[in-house]
Nucleic acid binder design. Sequence first.
DNA 1: TTAGCATCATTGACACGTCAACCGGTAGGT
DNA 2: ACCTACCGGTTGACGTGTCAATGATGCTAA
Lengths: 163, 163
Amino acid sequence: MTEATPGRRGGRQLPTADELRIWRDFIETTAALGSRLESRLQGDSSLSTGDYSVLLALSEAEGQAMRSSALASHIGWERSRLSHHLGRMERRGLIRRQECATVPRGAEVLLTTAGAEAFRGATFPHLRAIRELFVDALTPEQIVAAGEIATALKARLDDLRTQ
Amino acid sequence: MTEATPGRRGGRQLPTADELRIWRDFIETTAALGSRLESRLQGDSSLSTGDYSVLLALSEAEGQAMRSSALASHIGWERSRLSHHLGRMERRGLIRRQECATVPRGAEVLLTTAGAEAFRGATFPHLRAIRELFVDALTPEQIVAAGEIATALKARLDDLRTQ
DNA sequence: TTAGCATCATTGACACGTCAACCGGTAGGT
DNA sequence: ACCTACCGGTTGACGTGTCAATGATGCTAA
């Protein structure tokens, strides 16, 4: 199961029509789910899911502050993406950046009170939306299956990246 | 299952820690899968998945041409999104636009030979990537389960939109 | 007839992501 | 000491997506 057995289904190289239909349903529906959640969060709190990830990480951090690179790896973003996003969040007053005293050339990202407040206001509606759009849409067995599918897909992505 | 029973799991309003962990795995992994496929397609053919959707629809269309609005609803895009995308594709010579003879104010989108060729070259590697990243990552049972999960999530999204 | 009104498509402003280039500083090897 | 190589972070260019506003055109009802 971890190693692909190339001949498992007759050595075909291309998906069957059924597999393709499921693929399309799956990728399109998950994308639609993501953007619906995005717009729910936007409407409830004027935050994007990116903002939410950053604010969540900072809220849980020691002193509500993190080094930029630590933040990037914590939420799994590229550095340039984070830098652009922090610029936009700083303009809106949600975070602040300052030179790091201990590490030369390091940037410290600080949660502002406005940022903390925005995060507090967003959390409850966001979790409720996750429940309505995902948890309540599936049976308990399907939720477990979704977790296993995610794990298997992630393993495959990791395998192919380093290979 | 179609109607949410609010008290089904004790009337909680928020997801449990387990549900939340699965949610994050699920949404992040599917997003990563989508962008991996995007970059595979880009590397193999210099097309985006958006380009691919448009070219697929046009290839299958009568006379390799479609009205803009028909194309939009066929691939499920907003018209403004399609208009922007067609502008970029037209600059690259993949499609052409011309006034529609039959419908006033209608725009006809035509597949160019360069577009048809790009699509032909992209199809095989794209389908192979879907097989490698999705079909081969899952057991046959998991593929079925993925289809059912997509159907359930889609039904939920549709329910909540019209409600 | 004309004043709305819906329809088809485009446009502009803006948020977001990726890629590649860049910059400043530290560390290693010669 | 000097050259180089990396590291942390930023920037610019560009493709992409959404929203709201705009044109242009036909339909309908006062």
